[in-house]
Design a protein around this nucleic acid. Structure first.
Length: 376
DNA sequence: AAGACGTGGGA
DNA sequence: TTCCCAAGTCT
């Protein structure tokens, strides 16, 4: 008989010893109970309102979200109200918040909640994950905060806090790193008040364990922090490498008729999907005005010609450098539908103010008016 | 599985 | 001015 085979790797340390787990939990929860910010969605237990806050907070700062959240809830107070609203109305309420696919998916999910769950949001992360716009983070957040499930969550804040506490190596996006962070979050969350614990983790990252100038001297889990102990707080986690923004030029039709401007609603997918705009087509940076007119004619399904260039509006997005080239155009017919757009509408500035429109296009719209687009 | 998808605020 | 990025999801 051969001797029992030895393991070929050294035994790994347990992910998280119980005593250390309890100290980390207690420290974070204490900090939260003492210092948590008074945010409006922490004053409600309505799962729909909590869901809405989590969607709005994706990649968006708290101070930006607050007024949108309050207005949106007034306009669409329940899942049913949201589900039965037309998408353009939902996008109008989202105007200026960015990442508009969030609003489209929220609307779709509300309709599914009505159709599949009788208007009641399901209470587990696993079920929530089946709805549009619910990824791993949002499913864990809503399940734990609204329903008290011990579901883990990892967002940018949590990733930073756990990276420092447990000295997790690797860059954002690294598979092994993500797996380790989720494993740590999963190991930490079971216990009292899972929703509060998850919020404590995020709150700690937002207010104490910040990306720059973290407040280690005020930290409630400093004694547990490996990065602090090893003087590595400033180097964990490593910054993510970001691709250089790509240039994108749009030829924008400024078409006035009888005191109104022609507006178009964009296709549902992609950049500014489903939003209203001054009709625009993508062109090369060096496209001359007559060719831009030809492209716009095709998109609008009726011939237009350029009367004047009204200037260019530039806008910097995360992954794109946008140039909106305003062209005053005219044509002999005045279309009410067009091949490249979902809808066309001739609008007064007042009409336009209530439509869902990106901030980029809103700036272009204002610039067109400033340039005298509707001047007599 | 990288890349697309917005915006406003702070350094 | 310019750069970075903040409670992610989808394809």
């Amino acid at each position: 008989m051969s001797p029992p085979r030895k393991r070929d790797t050294a035994p790994t340390a347990p992910l998280l010893p119980p005593e250390r787990r309890e100290r980390v939990r207690a420290g974070l929860l204490d900090g939260y109970d003492r210092q948590k910010r008074d945010l409006p969605w922490r004053r409600t237990r309505d799962p729909y309102a909590i869901w809405l806050s989590e969607v709005m907070l994706q990649q968006t700062q708290v101070a930006t979200v607050i007024p949108y959240w309050e207005r949106f809830l007034q306009r669409f107070p329940t899942v049913e109200a949201l589900a039965s609203a037309p998408l353009p109305d939902v996008l109008a309420a989202w105007r200026g918040l960015g990442y508009y696919s969030r609003a489209r998916n929220l609307h779709l999910a509300a309709q599914e909640v009505v159709a599949r769950f009788g208007g009641r949001l399901p209470s587990t992360a696993a079920e929530l994950l089946t709805l549009p716009g619910f990824g791993r983070y949002t499913a864990g957040a809503v399940a734990s905060i609204a329903f008290g499930e011990s579901a883990p969550l990892v967002d940018g804040n949590v990733a930073r806090v756990l990276s420092r506490l447990f000295e997790v190596e690797g860059a954002p996006g690294d598979r092994a790193r993500e797996a380790r962070l989720w494993a740590l979050a999963t190991a930490l969350v079971p216990g009292e008040r899972p929703g509060d614990f998850n919020q404590a983790l995020m709150e700690h990252g937002a207010t104490v364990c910040r990306p720059e100038n973290p407040l280690c001297l005020l930290c409630s889990v400093r004694e547990e922090c490996l990065a602090y102990r090893h003087g590595r707080v400033d180097e964990l986690p490593p910054a993510k490498v970001r691709a250089a923004p790509k240039r994108m030029t749009l030829a924008v039709a400024v078409w006035a008729h009888a005191g109104r401007l022609l507006l178009a609603r964009r296709a549902e997918k992609g950049l500014f999907g489903g939003l209203w705009e001054l009709p625009a087509v993508e062109v090369d940076d060096d496209t001359p005005a007559p060719e831009s007119a030809a492209r716009l004619s095709q998109a609008l399904g009726t011939p237009v010609h350029v009367e004047a260039a009204l200037g260019t509006v530039r806008r910097q997005l995360t992954h794109r450098a946008l140039s909106l080239r305003l062209l005053r155009v005219t044509g002999t017919t005045h279309p009410t539908h067009a091949p490249a757009f979902q809808e066309l509408r001739w609008c007064t500035p007042q009409d336009a103010s209530s439509l869902g429109m990106s901030t980029a296009m809103h700036k272009a719209f204002e610039a067109a008016l400033d340039a005298g687009a509707l001047a007599p």
